[in-house]
Design a protein around this nucleic acid. Sequence first.
DNA 1: TCAGACATGTAACAAGTTACATGATTTT
DNA 2: AAAATCATGTAACTTGTTACATGTCTGA
Lengths: 176, 176
Amino acid sequence: MKLNSQDVILGILMHESISGYDIKHKFETIFSYFYNASYGTIYPTLGKMEKDGLITKMSVMQEGKPNKNVYTITEEGKRSFHQYLYSEIQDNEMKSDFLVRLHFGEMAEPGLVRHWLEKGLQKAEEELKKIKADEQRYKPYMSPTQEICIEIGITNKENVLRILKDKLSKLKSMEP
Amino acid sequence: MKLNSQDVILGILMHESISGYDIKHKFETIFSYFYNASYGTIYPTLGKMEKDGLITKMSVMQEGKPNKNVYTITEEGKRSFHQYLYSEIQDNEMKSDFLVRLHFGEMAEPGLVRHWLEKGLQKAEEELKKIKADEQRYKPYMSPTQEICIEIGITNKENVLRILKDKLSKLKSMEP
DNA sequence: TCAGACATGTAACAAGTTACATGATTTT
DNA sequence: AAAATCATGTAACTTGTTACATGTCTGA
């Protein structure tokens, strides 16, 4: 079966009880370069998981903040997660608008292609900066395998950055 | 708007008239590392595009093979594609089961993690071999921007390969 | 008082997958 | 005769997104 948000959420809950809002935060930081899901997925999925007995809900009062619903994994949920861990690894799903456009570069004016390359470079720089900041922030809590993840994430971004810088500098030397 | 199969198919048809079957073939070769779609997407999308006047269908007889439906882009289709080219670049969509599992490595037995790393390494080797073969095969027909795409694809895979080899050799030296 | 972070949720919709169904033709 | 490749298509289902809707609390 294909990778889905339920299994990823179960994995997060294996480590700690957490709210939907904080799950989203994880998706936007440590998961950003290999998984993401919107609130429109997270909240309904949590609802379904609770209904199915994989998790339980607890309302937690906070000082200075609105209440939140903190979810905890059940034994049934743990079983479900282990079933995922022992299933076949699924192929990467990758949809890159940037690479699709580059592939069709011949159909666009050179100025537009250059604009894409510049945008792509800028984006890669921002994302690299963000991953590195997250790495510094979460390093003390990271397991060895999580360090492998982030190493792959960082070096791949650096790789893209290097290539785009190189291609753009060549463009600039040709038509300055 | 989000990247979708219709725009990618329009781009392919900008270059040449082609059948649904051959579009799938492109997805599995040159597009493999940045886009993919199943027949269940391709055929209904072609049907919708024809209905919308973006493409026209022609039945082509073949010797030694079944007939095929070859689609050609219309002026309306070209306009639609240019609209896509001038729209905002959308963010990457990436869902990596391999990295999700690695992230949850602490929840699995060491033997299972090692199995994932070995599988991941094997997969990366196969994919790299495949991209390089496709590169050799399609090099003569590739535009400069298509060469950038494949360079990014190849170096990223090499990067993952290097990291996984390194991590696995370290594992082996610890518990041989 | 207003922006911004915190927090949850739903409904309409879009997109795509998987499995099924069919059939031609070639190669082994 | 079977397997492989070529070729098209549909229906049921799953998943997820976007936009909308609401509300708390802090700090500038």
